[in-house]
Write a protein that binds this DNA or RNA. Structure first.
Lengths: 219, 219
DNA sequence: ACCTGAACACCGTTCAAGT
DNA sequence: ACCTGAACACCGTTCAAGT
């Protein structure tokens, strides 16, 4: 097998995306350069222009890929709490809360994706794929809210507003966690904090009233 | 008449910071260049190096300035809710919630500051002023949490954890709002949403226990 | 001290030319 | 079609030199 074929036979585009992600994970999106991506792919510095009109179009492709994967993660999240009592009581609520955890898990596992998706100034109007995949991910979240409303786990009312509030919560946790501004040493601690944040948003941070006991305690 | 004095007499550093902020607000931190800042200040392209060791040091100065102003805003926030019924019951709680609103207001009024503070990869260990001002701002938040705990408006327990949860909430709202990912057309709508998010975190998103539907406790 | 022009090694993007 | 080297106008940073 030739170690470095002089010509790529049509598989250059995915190879460029992969090399770009690897580079961003090393140097961040700000220091990311197209010429270095080309170097790592073993091609000349302007060959990428056969596949991407400009640098931002490559970044937009990465962002769109990220929103697709994020949408998949939201639609098919892992378990919410493995522990006691999560039997069959409130499946829609559990999926809603698990999707929040999946959001943070996605960020921790692919921080370079999240950075390009949210911290790079891409005009979404110019990249329809990006706008569509972002829209899809948000729609999935709204659907989870509506499911919990139907179930009675969330109050009736504006599902989009409730989705935006939940989104803000997990987005804040994700952004602060991957920029190492929260005091966590590993992914498990960060995910545990994310779960507590999601629970706090559902139950409220207020101290329990002297009357009826609050729901959803841990333990 | 002297529109452009050929020499700056010691006031060049603040002039550079101001020009830099203006430029960032126009093009974003990614497209921000030191040479353009120098051009706007009317000096040669390497004169800034008399005041900043490198480009990142200027950005670190901007970030530190931002954390100072953010800390001031948290310590002295505006009113929480001007309207009905917020009499004089819980001043510490109201200051805590108002500080969250002040966080979002700061972001909306100085988005270029927030971008540099949180979205530029500055190694904080290399810029002590930045680390100190960020630490101060966070300490103010923790103090507000402790005040609410003493008052009984927040449950006893880890004040830092509660501060991190509240921070994540308002940071998510701020970041999504200034990147125009939430459906708001003006600052008033965004601030109103921020207030509802803060209230939701305090009260919980769960429907009230005496709600319309079956709401059996768990088990 | 503070500022300057020239220089270096980069970068994004374009273009005429190769196979 | 897909790739190439040369070129252009930038950029961050350095340096010897001016006042």
């Amino acid at each position: 097998m030739a170690a470095k074929p002089p010509y790529h036979h049509g598989n250059l585009k995915p190879a460029l995306l992969e090399a770009a992600l690897q580079l961003i994970s090393e140097v961040g999106p700000a220091a990311f350069t197209l010429r270095e991506v080309a170097r790592r792919a073993g091609i000349s510095h302007n060959a990428p222009y056969r596949h991407f009109r400009e640098k931002d179009e490559l970044l937009a492709a990465i962002a769109a890929q990220g929103f697709e994967r994020l949408g998949d993660a939201l639609a098919n999240p892992g378990p919410w709490k493995s522990g006691a009592g999560s039997g069959a009581g409130k499946p829609a609520l559990e999926r809603f809360q698990a999707s929040g955890l999946a959001y943070v898990r996605f960020a921790l596992n692919a921080p370079e994706h999240l950075l390009v998706m949210f911290d790079w100034p891409l005009t979404p109007a110019h990249y329809p794929n990006l706008a569509a995949s972002a829209e899809r991910a948000f729609s999935i979240l709204v659907g989870l809210v509506q499911g919990a409303q139907t179930e009675g786990s969330l109050p009736p009312g504006d599902a989009m507003e409730q989705a935006c509030i939940a989104w803000s919560m997990v987005h804040g946790v994700a952004k602060l966690a991957i920029s190492h501004r929260l005091p966590f040493r590993n992914e498990a601690e960060a995910l545990s904090f994310a779960a507590r944040s999601i629970q706090a948003l559902y139950d409220g941070m207020a101290p329990p009233k002297s009357g009826p006991k609050k729901r959803g305690g841990r333990g």
